[in-house]
Nucleic acid binder design. Structure first.
Lengths: 252, 252
DNA sequence: TCAAAAGTGTTCGTAATACACCCATGG
DNA sequence: CCATGGGTGTATTACGAACACTTTTGA
């Protein structure tokens, strides 16, 4: 169980000269969603500079790094129990060499060198309530192809996260996390096509997905659509969990 | 180019009360070798407690984390330019919960909580000169199946490293790094069998390896062996590099 | 009524798997 | 001289890729 932590304002980061957080170490989260057949990523905009960045935060001195990532994720999305994956730790001493830094206060601990631990998460778009933090003006979804220049090395981090996610696509059924509970086969295909960046054959795709034996076709069809109405599917929870344990391969 | 760093004794870790290294962050290296058809890992033994651990170290305040890993690796093996891979960052606040800690000096910075960044390396066994550091008595190769209880969570780290290495086996030709320049096809097969933990068919293995078109068969055969003398192979440097760029799949 | 999208099934080629024969060597 | 390990080739299978026809729907 993850310990509850108060949300601190910057003025409360210190107690008797002692920083609540570990110095020099931060966490950055790349939060992916899927909507309108587009892959989205959640970004924050700084109040003063109006520059964009990945949601991130620091680690309490007695907090598990993974718990810190969960906490940060929850504070920006409102979601718990999401698929969250640590993918790389960025340790360049000049991570701000691109000159998109956010130096704000002189001699602040926040201007020290930071090593950042990168996590990515896949979440159900419609469930997310994007929530800004104390330092930021807004928190918004961005189309992955339209992401602006971010602060520090956050564009690099995003790039690496995407690569890591793509590698996972063939080993983990990401649909469960990125799609709503009920979805159509074409929906699922769009998702994979977007993630993999290539077109897939409709029929072979369906065959492969069904052969994994983790989907359950519902009797209903999608209503109010043009052309022939596609069936709705959902993940069969039991089979899904069983398949996860023994590790399933996609090979798309 | 990696900056040269002096090897500091513990008494020299501080200058005017300022620690040379980043606090709370360490690096641990899992260094793999292959010898006598067995997968080996390089371990250090502490002088006082005689407990074993992974080679590790700290990060200079202005040093790239990857460079720190390279530096640590070189100081324990004498090798540069090895295949080194960051695989996970371990962030449990009670990493010493197993009670195999090495608390030595009270109130020392070294007893603080540490987050450690894990790297694994694959090296050519015969090229390595295992070298102990200031704190350790010896530095030795251990059979991967006979590794003793290590300090802190180092057994976990080793386990994760092995898993990460195994995942890489199918995407990276590890033979080049783990075998001597000249080797036989059975040698290569033993390596893969050890890494994957399963027997492979002799003939299919050879077919697959040759089909990758990165090996070059030499005219010589291995001498002084019982039974039919196997051919020697080496990696064709050009083809090897070309294959690496376009990414080759093994599927073993 | 017809274009566009969805459901279903067949063929084909390649790649993985299984397996058999001959050759060389040291004990 | 034969048991053991190594070199090479072939049959079989499985899976992914390519592809065709029918059905449904709203504009």
């Amino acid at each position: 169980m993850v310990k509850k932590r108060p949300v601190l304002k910057e003025s409360e980061f210190f107690s008797k000269g002692q920083l609540y957080f570990l110095p020099h170490i931060s966490i950055d989260c790349v939060i992916f969603g899927f909507h309108n057949n587009e892959l989205k990523v959640l970004l924050l905009q700084w109040k003063e500079t109006l520059k964009w960045c990945l949601p991130g935060g620091f680690i309490y001195r007695d907090e598990h790094v993974n718990d810190a990532a969960i906490r940060i994720l929850k504070s920006r999305t409102g979601l718990e129990d999401v698929y969250l994956q640590q993918f790389y730790t960025f340790g360049d001493p000049q991570r701000d060499r691109g000159n998109h830094g956010v130096k704000q206060k002189k001699n602040s601990w926040i201007n020290d060198r930071f090593i950042t631990i990168g996590y990515w998460a896949i979440v159900e778009y419609s469930q997310v309530k994007p929530t800004a933090d104390e330092f930021s003006k807004t928190c918004e979804w961005w189309d992955i192809d339209k992401v602006p220049k971010l602060i520090l090395d956050h564009n690099d981090i995003l790039k690496e996260a995407l690569e890591s996610l793509r590698k996972n696509v063939n080993e983990y059924p990401v649909g469960k996390n990125l799609l709503p509970p009920k979805f159509t086969m074409p929906d699922l295909q769009r998702l994979y096509e977007t993630l993999l960046g290539k077109k897939l054959d409709r029929r072979n795709f369906q065959k492969k997905m069904l052969s994994l034996d983790i989907l359950q076709r519902l009797k209903e069809r999608k209503s109010g659509v043009a052309h022939k109405a596609p069936y709705l599917y959902k993940f069969d929870e039991k089979k899904y969990q069983r398949a996860l344990k023994q590790g399933l391969k996609f090979g798309l």
